[in-house]
Design a protein around this nucleic acid. Sequence first.
DNA 1: GTACTCGAACTGACGAAGGCTCATCGGCTC
DNA 2: GAGCCGATGAGCCTTCGTCAGTTCGAGTAC
Lengths: 298, 298
Amino acid sequence: MSLRQFEYALAVAEQGSVTAAAELLRVAQPSVSQQIRSLERELGVKLFARTATGLVPTVVGRAFLREAEVAVNASRRARATARAGADDLVGELVVAAQMGFGTRQLPGALGTLRRRFPRLEVTVFEEPSSAELERLCRRGVLDLALMAACERSPANAHHLGDEEFVVVLGAGHPRLAADRVDLRELEGEPWVRFDRDSALDGVLLNVLRDNELTPTTVARVSQTATAVRWAAHGLGVTLVPASAVPHGHEHLVRPVFPVVSQPVIAVVRPGAGPAETALFDLLRQETWHKAASFSPVS
Amino acid sequence: MSLRQFEYALAVAEQGSVTAAAELLRVAQPSVSQQIRSLERELGVKLFARTATGLVPTVVGRAFLREAEVAVNASRRARATARAGADDLVGELVVAAQMGFGTRQLPGALGTLRRRFPRLEVTVFEEPSSAELERLCRRGVLDLALMAACERSPANAHHLGDEEFVVVLGAGHPRLAADRVDLRELEGEPWVRFDRDSALDGVLLNVLRDNELTPTTVARVSQTATAVRWAAHGLGVTLVPASAVPHGHEHLVRPVFPVVSQPVIAVVRPGAGPAETALFDLLRQETWHKAASFSPVS
DNA sequence: GTACTCGAACTGACGAAGGCTCATCGGCTC
DNA sequence: GAGCCGATGAGCCTTCGTCAGTTCGAGTAC
């Protein structure tokens, strides 16, 4: 069975004869006749009854033609979609973000993208594991990935900006009296950490090591919102990207000294099309400056 | 573009590589590779991105594959429908009935047909013009036709039974006192007749001629229900098939003498399939005896 | 850091199958 | 009897598949 046979059969049904259908299709009459007969032979049923003035669909032929028409129409939409994709932005964009990074910038860029290109669909998911995210990039299943830069960032990474990290303290914590917190003063504090092998936990480990702090783990969580909430309740302190702090917790947040920030990169698939490129451009236009959430820059 | 290319592309997307897709499709790997590239060349877009470990759909590729899957699924349903049609009764049956004939028998048979074969769809329409009905039969667009027999009935006509005609009188009409009406006694009565060239009018003309009655036309109508209603209101008298008398008018109806009946034939399309045959068998099982509506026969 | 191996896609040649045109024939209708 | 329609057969061209081989990138061993 082929689309060509479907189109020939539909034309015969519509025109009422093989000769008229052949004229419409701009092929010779025997070509249509042969294709119809070949289709009937393959299916083992008579799709058309032969009359002196032409062909008419049989009972089962009509049912068959209904589905054949669905197939032909879908193939026309497929072609139109592909053609449109070469010029306009249609299709399905797959984006992954390393959890905690770009939590405010990515939605902003996606909102603008959707308004400009309504026919473009976007699938976004967060990926906690750095190794897994890099593996997905290498496999090519992602159109664009947002992640923290590290020593094994891919060669096609583009630096977007820096994500500043802040400490979240419990309500009533004495360090809230200051505008910012010296990391050394957090010696002995229990930490709400993230899952092992996650980028966020890697950042914390580096910070603790660089400041000669002993990591005392009170909990391990998967979500940044959970970490912030538990820290706010006084379970311990936690270190998260500033953009990941939910509304309503700003009063429990303090920048740290020395400043902790992580360069954020976008990895775009090699040979990117117009959709990925558009999103990348929008992400670059977002605000990625240091301490963005505390000293607004126009 | 072809269904084969769609199937290959969907397999590649699902399996993640040309080699795995080829194995699934039981063809050699270069065959799949060539079909994918040929499709991309024809469309002028990249449907897949090449990676070291295989192919992955691009943004536009995913949109394309969605429609391609619709087309492939429809073609599978088309094939299944055709195959089922060869064994079971699926499809769309087209039936025409000459107006006024088989008005009770046809619905009965169709009801039974629908209960037995739920997947079979039936389209029925009434056709007033004998000539037009015969033309449709010759053109082969009908699977089955019900009509009054006449001198130019097709060779493949099957006699089902006879349709008795009755006269409808106005309320208060003196002839209602008798159990039946002698046609000669209707001399001078005005007639509610049917459209010219209709089978029902042909029957009336023959009856009037045979009984040496002068046709006085008071109205011409298209519907049997309209003729009965107008006669009931005393506009004139009318002659209709017994089975066409609506409920609630039986008391105004009388058989006539000499008896007027018309043989009813079913014309089945040459090379009929199981659906037409089934309906024909059911119609033959219906009650077609003379005066069926007045002397019930089990 | 380099060399080797493995897996994957791509390329070219060749044979088989499919699709089209052309010429023709048989059947039906007007 | 003329015209229209579908079907048939021959011949040619295109498409599809296989086979053998090449190229490229990633992973591993040294």
